[in-house]
């Protein structure tokens, strides 16, 4: 019997379920019309976390070392930081 069949759930299935759960949380935040910087950064943080789960869990980058290990995470942090700054500044303008 392999390690896979001994597990109660495949790691990729667990990642999938977490992604679905986080997506539902994001949707509920939008559905309830929640506002404010805290909510905005919470939703943005969830998106970045989901992105990292895709990179590590689905794209298989957790098994990669060097540049490619961090390429997706760097992209996520870069985009997240710039978008976060823009939303933060716009809250001051509004």
């Amino acid at each position: 019997m392999t390690a896979d069949t001994q597990r109660w759930i495949r790691p990729c299935t667990l990642v999938y379920l977490v992604l679905v759960g986080l997506t539902l949380v994001t949707w509920v935040a939008g559905r309830l019309g929640l506002q404010g910087m805290g909510v905005t950064f919470f939703v943005l943080g969830l998106a970045l976390l989901k992105g990292q789960l895709i990179g590590d869990g689905f794209m298989g980058l957790r098994h990669v070392r060097g540049f490619w290990r961090w390429a997706i995470l760097t992209w996520l942090v870069g985009v997240g930081a710039l978008v976060g700054v823009a939303f933060f500044l716009s809250s001051g303008l509004h």
């Binding site: 997506t23 994001t26 949707w27 935040a29 939008g30 939703v43 943005l44 969830l46 998106a47 970045l48 989901k50 992105g51 895709i54 996520l76 985009v79 978008v83």
Partner: peptide, 9 residues
């Protein structure tokens, strides 16, 4: 996964 919250939420 980035586009959804950014544009919709």
């Amino acid at each position: 996964l980035i586009l959804f919250p950014l544009v919709y939420v």
